[in-house]
């Protein structure tokens, strides 16, 4: 029962991070500025949600842990690649 509530708390916290980190996407800031917020929402928020899911179905933990690790890796590397590729945009265009 208590696990259930912890899981709900994790998912809610993740959803809050999603909302808070996605919001600056519609603003007019540089892509790098938005990227910082996306790393909050997409990496940290999604990880919190996945931990909440993991607490609900613990029998599938191997695949969920694999997904959790690869989520963190891929999102971080995607952030790095996007930052590397979009730099210099502001100076020449």
């Amino acid at each position: 029962m208590i696990l259930q509530w912890i899981s709900y708390a994790c998912i809610s916290f993740g959803l809050f991070l999603w909302l808070w980190g996605t919001w600056p996407l519609v603003g007019r800031r540089s892509p790098l500025y938005k990227l910082h917020f996306l790393s909050v929402s997409d990496t940290l928020g999604s990880m919190a949600i996945m931990i909440g899911v993991l607490l609900r179905i613990p029998r599938e933990w191997p695949l969920l842990v694999l997904a959790l690790i690869s989520l963190a890796l891929w999102n971080t590397i995607l952030g790095y690649v996007l930052a590397y590729c979009s730099q210099g945009e502001d100076t020449d265009g």
Binding site: L32, L35, H36, S39, T76, I77, G79, A83, Y84, Q87
Partner: peptide
């Protein structure tokens, strides 16, 4: 990975 994972810093 460590630097980019923390939300305040990104390696360019």
């Amino acid at each position: 990975f460590t630097i980019t994972f923390t939300p305040k810093t990104i390696v360019l």
